[in-house]
């Protein structure tokens, strides 16, 4: 059973407030080797949660533990085993993918020979090898996202945090990204991902968490969520039906 695996990520009573509570006493437990999808309407607190886990935002209260490391007390150690990828690929236009990956590997203190081997593998898998020595400035959104994903994976992180990584990608690029992520999970990595593409969550996630108003309102496998929604509505259906039933009383609020 998945629950017997070590805990890759645990948040307890996690809180963040702007004008209103963005994340409200959130408890999340994600196990090693698990693909976890976090769903919710706009403004539900998904991105804020992930940014706090990645160390980009300081929570107002609560704790974050990554692979047993207290990420608030020892952020450097936690970051060493974590990767973050947002929907807007943040890369350097005037570096080539090869130079970008060398930069990332250096930041994570990865042995140069190992990092180069890993970088070449990733560039190959993601179809970027022919463009490895071209500057990123002329790349399409999909290519840029793939470069950013390669950067997130080149240091072999235990926990991969992805915020809408498939936004704006064409079908081919999205397939490549999904395949690489599946491969990582098969190899024992843990993925937590937000997405608005419910079909992706349905196909890829081991478990799905549904968040609204900063709180986890439902969590489980797709069947478990269907069951929960079915109890309320007396019918079962696709993840879209299930999701809309679960968040039906939690309408979209202002953008995160």
């Amino acid at each position: 059973m998945i629950q017997h695996r070590p805990i890759a990520l645990a948040t307890r009573d996690l809180c963040k407030r702007y004008d209103r509570p963005a994340v409200d006493r959130l408890d999340l437990t994600i196990y090693g080797g698990e693909f976890y999808s976090l769903l919710g309407p706009n403004g539900a607190g998904k991105t804020t949660t992930l940014r706090m886990v990645a160390g980009l935002l300081r929570p107002d209260a609560g704790s974050v533990a990554i692979d047993g490391i207290d990420a608030l007390a020892d952020p450097v150690a936690a970051k060493q085993i974590t990767a973050w990828l947002s929907d807007e690929p943040m890369i350097y236009d005037r570096l080539t993918p090869f130079e970008y990956l060398e930069f990332v590997a250096g930041l994570w203190r990865i042995d140069a020979a190992d990092a180069e081997r890993s970088a070449n593998e990733l560039l190959d898998w993601l179809g970027l090898a022919p463009h490895a020595h071209e500057r990123c400035e002329g790349f399409s959104k999909g290519m840029r996202q793939k470069v950013a994903l390669a950067g997130a994976l080149v240091h072999d992180p235990k926990l991969i945090i992805l915020d809408e990584p498939l936004t704006g990608l064409d079908a081919g690029s999205a397939r490549q990204v999904k395949n690489v992520l599946k491969e990582r999970v098969r190899a024992g990595g843990t993925v937590i991902m937000t997405t608005h593409i419910l079909e992706v969550a349905e196909r890829m996630a081991d478990r799905i968490g549904v968040i609204a108003h900063g709180r986890l309102i439902a969590e489980g496998t797709l069947d478990e969520l269907r069951l929960m929604a079915g109890k309320e509505t007396d019918k079962a259906g696709s993840l879209e039906d299930t999701f809309l039933t679960l968040v039906g009383d939690a309408p979209a609020v202002i953008a995160e």
């Binding site: 990645a54 160390g55 980009l56 450097v76 150690a77 970051k79 060493q80 974590t82 990767a83 973050w84 947002s86 943040m90 890369i91 350097y92 236009d93 990332v104 930041l107 994570w108 203190r109 950013a148 950067g151």
Partner: peptide, 13 residues
């Protein structure tokens, strides 16, 4: 800095 998130999530102070 064109990749602030990358630098901020790197294991370096």
């Amino acid at each position: 800095e064109d990749a602030p998130d990358l630098v901020a999530t790197a294991p370096i102070t």
